[in-house]
Nucleic acid binder design. Structure first.
Lengths: 225, 225
DNA sequence: TATCATACATACGTGCATGCACGTATTCAA
DNA sequence: TTGAATACGTGCATGCACGTATGTATGATA
């Protein structure tokens, strides 16, 4: 009887401990990502995070040391997804300009889900602070800036990007414009892709028609579920 | 003796009540603007706001009903300054494209002071909320969007802006890219002006060389002191 | 089946920021 | 000069959210 009960009950699918833990962790991470994206760190209420994931704060504090630890985990999680879905595909483009434009379009697609403004929101919230969360977002941001600087220098050497302000300033403007445009255009698919590419092309100072070509990224579904 | 004391003492300059009130209010508003720009609404601590202005929370609660009232006053204050220093000068340009580019450059100059990210920060913090502060920032943002839509339509009719996505989508992307670029480039003068103009030109889909011309806005000093 | 470990829920204490009541100092009005 | 009004400082109460301690249920181990 007890064996029959265990096999027929669809509610508890007889999960292993590790599976159970991983499932809870994923649900909490995704909920926290949405929350951070919407409310930022300070306004994020852990009670709501847990509730929206179907748990209580107890589960949350069992998986994460504290609020800060949770936020850091979310940042890492979002960054990994971004790298897989946007960063790596874009890196396969032939020339620097194509890679930067692919980044723009890919970022627009990536931000279609609402877990996107996390970095922007946290970067704004912790700008000039000495908080671990701020340092981590700053580190990720700096990685992106460095990548853009390399691509801009390469493009200028190749002649596909005209000279202009220092590469770092251009890179900052490029990423800032990209994030701002994508956030403002949240939900306005499919125009967000084109307009993000246009903004990037504009900051680079290249002819805008290169942004009009539409090499739709294959929209990789997030494997982390 | 008492008359001599009143004339020589530079500390209390024998202000009238209205002057006293206005001076305190200005100091508190400016301090609150910096705070909102840095920390956002939720993380803003009124004790710090008052202290940085040289007062205590008592003075603050005497001038403003509550935290919300203070934030609304700051938003109105910043918006008025923006209109005077950026919006009106830009409106004197001949064609729509020139006006949009002037807005971009003017906004970059305006954001040189650190009271600039207020709108962006609050818009992010209250996006999708039903909070009075959120509604007010949304209203101001919408005003800017509407203005851009008009200019884009006019430019398209005149042939200076090529056809493309719906004017509203372009306007959203334009303002988003502008704010994002300027925030990311905070402190990188004078390149911020050029890059902001480039981002705007790019989103519009116009030749970027129009952004390179440098009609430096005359840098109006804020008369509200 | 008995025991332990792990996942999760519940209850409590604590710190902090807001808002308000009240006290003090400065200006205006007679 | 004196009393009222206004500008501002100070102390207290409340609420909210975090972190932790404790209790309970489910999966692992023998």
């Amino acid at each position: 009887m007890s064996s029959a009960r265990a096999s027929t009950l669809s509610a508890h699918e007889r999960l292993t401990q590790a599976e159970r833990r991983a499932r809870s962790r994923s649900a909490l991470l995704e909920s926290a990502a949405r929350g951070l994206s919407r409310y930022g760190y300070g306004n994020l209420v852990l009670e709501e995070v847990a509730r929206e994931a179907g748990y209580t704060r107890g589960a949350l504090y069992h998986q994460f040391k504290d609020k800060e630890d949770l936020a850091l985990a979310v940042i890492e999680w979002v960054n990994e997804n971004w790298m897989r879905e946007v960063g790596k595909p874009a890196a396969q483009q032939a020339d620097p300009v194509a890679e930067l434009l692919a980044m723009a379009r890919g970022h627009a697609v990536f931000c279609g889900r609402d877990i996107a403004r996390v970095v922007m929101a946290l970067r704004l919230e912790f700008a000039g602070q000495h908080h671990p969360v701020g340092r981590e977002t700053e580190r990720i941001w700096e990685t992106g800036v460095k990548r853009c600087v390399r691509l801009i220098n390469a493009g200028r050497k190749a002649g596909s990007i005209p000279p202009g302000p220092p590469a770092r300033a251009v890179a900052l403007g490029l990423l800032g414009a990209l994030e701002g445009a994508v956030i403002a255009l949240a939900g306005h698919t499919p125009h967000d892709q084109l307009l993000a590419a246009r903004a990037v092309a504009g900051v680079l100072g290249i002819a805008s028609h290169r942004a009009e070509e539409t090499p739709h990224p294959p929209a990789i579904p997030p494997p982390t579920k």
